[in-house]
């Protein structure tokens, strides 16, 4: 990672945690509706990161072994499997299909 990116991400990550705890938190305590909407941000953004990591190759969409691994992970998450089982199954599925 570039030095710029390490510094900038450190500021962004630490800063947002402090901002959340000390500035946004007290405001949200009085505004439950806003708190609820803000609480949905991670669902939207993290799903986008998952899409980027599992079906994108550069700027094109590709359906490959990663997607199969993610589908297996999705079923296991839905069935409330433990974290390590989900991660291992995704890696093994992806690696296994590539080995064929």
């Amino acid at each position: 990672m570039t030095t710029l990116s390490i510094v900038a991400l450190t500021v962004a990550v630490w800063g947002q945690r402090l901002l959340g705890g000390f500035v946004v938190g007290p405001v949200l305590a009085r505004r439950p509706a806003m708190a609820q909407v803000l609480g949905l941000v991670p669902a939207a953004v993290v799903m986008a990161v998952i899409v980027q990591l599992s079906v994108a190759d550069g700027r094109s969409l590709v359906l490959d072994e990663r997607l199969a691994g993610m589908l297996v992970a999705g079923v296991l998450v839905w069935r409330r499997a433990p974290f390590l089982a989900v991660v291992l199954a995704a890696a093994l599925t992806t690696a296994g299909l590539r080995a064929i």
Partner: peptide
């Protein structure tokens, strides 16, 4: 990277 870190800010709230 900063946008996805909003998750941690929200956890801190």
């Amino acid at each position: 990277g900063a946008v996805v870190a909003t998750r941690f800010g929200i956890l801190a709230t």
